[in-house]
Design a protein around this nucleic acid. Structure first.
Lengths: 252, 252
DNA sequence: CGGCGCATTGAGGGCGGTCAATTGGTGTGG
DNA sequence: CCACACCAATTGACCGCCCTCAATGCGCCG
């Protein structure tokens, strides 16, 4: 929960009063197994979910059976804050690993919008960052090669996970299958596999044993045409403050 | 301005007090010519823009020169409400036709979040609908054929324009080039042209003289695997209430 | 009339898709 | 400890959707 609060008003700390309000708004925590549906598609819901532990995605399955992942969510992310105003979403949230999820009833969110304008803006902002990532993915899917897309995804995960302290040196655990990566980047499984091999051969990054290791951060970013601004992490990612070191906490 | 207000709390009417607040928050209106940059990329801004007349898009140009359009905006849309919390966006807003734009200083939006929680939620909601469209486009770009993508785009525009009264029978003006359509759907210009021809030959829809005419709404939706829910128009689009008729106003 | 922007058409090629088989790691039960 | 099942990763062969290059048509406007 704490790491979630750190990120919400990022890079500023969230006032204590608002922290408490948010913590109180979690009515319960729920556990899911890998593959479980956290939130079903096309079903009205009256709560939103924060990922406290584990990885999940939002996905849509077409009539042909093909799947498109529209977003990945890591610990600290709301996976369906968008449902607060929209109630029903056309895609479902699915656990990619075992997940611990905090449930926030929409009624509590509504109260927040009435008495906590600043916190409201921070929640709003977090959905706008989601949208910014969607737009970036549109650029990747529409105009970038398979190699660039995968490289971009690996860059994105690196920064997102770094903020919540889930990187170690230049590598991080990415507990998803190549099939998941394919369905996110609009590629076939076979081609994703070959592209991973290419990234490895070029000395850019390796994806193996569900772990990404970045060999050459500079060249990986170039290959991806990666510009981190769309993630709106400020320059406060630990990466930017002291490369390699992960000793100092970002915000208390 | 009025048609904008109708849509914001859609399908409910926006309370008069909030309507006035919004109207007052427009500090000025500005005119742009086709091709003008309405809002530059990577530049901090302190206002957001409502399209009062004309069509615009958000777009990103890569180093290779290729362009990806991430969104189209029609009259009544905020084209960069997302900039309210994020301040800087990596893509620019560009006028596709002559545009009349209402400028809303962020300071006014901030005041709204403090004293008008309901209106705040409606503005938040409109950005969430943007995000919902982005996710749908991700599905299109990632997993659908060129034919499906174009068909989907034509369906989407039909409903979005219908809500603001910009359709006539089963056709509407879409004042963009095939090149714009290509850059939105991640296709080459040549292939977009051929796919338009295919849509016409199949009797689904025609795009000519910057006008889309839908010949077979049912089959067009099938080809696109189009489900309108993601637009969150409720069932209040005039299309759904009385097909073909456009006499009764949706909301006063 | 010439220039310009957009639409259209043809030819050829490559990126990435599909089908299919194999390998390897892991967990389970005999 | 091995047999087996199962899943993910890997590799090969082939193919097609869509891209690129290039030329032509067409309407508009100065």
């Amino acid at each position: 929960m704490q790491r979630f609060l750190e990120r919400l008003a990022w890079p500023d700390p969230l006032p204590e009063e608002e922290q408490n309000r948010l913590i109180k708004s979690v009515s319960q925590t729920v556990l899911f197994n890998a593959g479980d549906e956290i939130v079903p598609a096309e079903t009205p819901i009256d709560f939103s979910s924060i990922i406290l532990d584990g990885f999940c995605c939002r996905q849509r399955v077409l009539k042909t059976g093909s799947r498109q992942i529209t977003a990945f969510h890591v610990p600290g992310d709301f996976c369906d804050l968008h449902a607060y105003m929209l109630k029903t979403l056309p895609d479902s949230a699915v656990a990619l690993t075992a997940c611990r999820v905090g449930i926030v009833p929409h009624e509590r969110l509504r109260e927040i919008t009435i008495v906590q304008p600043h916190l409201t803006r921070m929640l709003w902002k977090s959905t706008l960052i989601d949208a910014s990532v969607y737009r970036q993915w549109l650029v990747c899917l529409g105009r970038q090669s398979a190699l660039s897309r995968l490289a971009h995804l690996f860059c994105e995960f690196y920064l997102r996970l770094d903020v919540v302290g889930l990187t170690k040196e230049m590598s991080y655990s990415l507990p998803v299958t190549q099939s998941d990566l394919s369905d996110a980047m609009g590629l076939s499984l076979v081609h994703t596999n070959r592209t991973c091999a290419q990234l490895r051969q070029k000395g850019l990054a390796t994806f193996a044993q569900r772990t990404v290791t970045i060999h050459d951060w500079e060249r990986l970013q170039e290959a991806a045409e990666f510009e981190s601004e769309y993630l709106h992490l400020g320059n406060h990612s630990r990466r930017w403050r002291s490369a390699g070191s992960n000793s100092e906490p970002a915000i208390t």
